[in-house]
Amino acid sequence: MDKVFNVIISGVGGQGILTASELLSKVAMASGLDTKKSEVHGMSQRGGSVVSHVRFGRKVYSPLVEMGTCDLILSFEKSEALRWIHYLKVEGAKVIINDLELIPTTVSIGLDTYPRDIVKSIEEKVRAEVLLIPATDIANRTGDARTANTVLLGAMSNYLPFEPIVWEKVITESFKKHTIEANLMAFRFGREFK
């Protein structure tokens, strides 16, 4: 893979963004690629917006994705997908969005409004394929609502150059024993969502 593949994972502090980007990085590494990821801890964990950049390919220099080169955005929350749209490449990008709205305090106290018609406004501005996924509903089918992130990873995996078997191996190695089965199931449900 000579071209470097660029992924941005976004969401709200506490949603598990860093764990998800860690899994993706491990899959890329296990597939023999140079891998880098970047994120910032600290302030942003306190309910603020969180973003993680993951890059993989034959040789990667910058851990940050350059504006205009992102192949895929995975967002764990709807409005957080909007925040990074200008990082996408202009043709052929993918945007995978969890159908979840987390209303920040700024909206409740009237300082700001929550954006409406998010999918439509992305589709109007960017030539990208947008996928809205009810991850929590799907996760409930595994019996464990906390596997929603793994559903999203499953959906994303359809657009990445990795074998499902590598994903499943990394999932098996990364989760606590009693949650492995539910997570594998969530991953497969996510993969069916195209």
């Binding site: 504006m67 490449k89 501005k125």
Partner: peptide
């Protein structure tokens, strides 16, 4: 960042979509 270096030295930007405003979400 790569884009700041590119813009600074070459006065160029890679083509990219226009930003869309999202909601303010400061830490709380």
């Amino acid at each position: 960042s790569p884009e700041v270096v590119r813009k600074g030295v070459l006065n160029e930007e890679l083509p990219h979509p226009e930003p869309i405003k999202s909601v303010m979400r400061p830490p709380v």
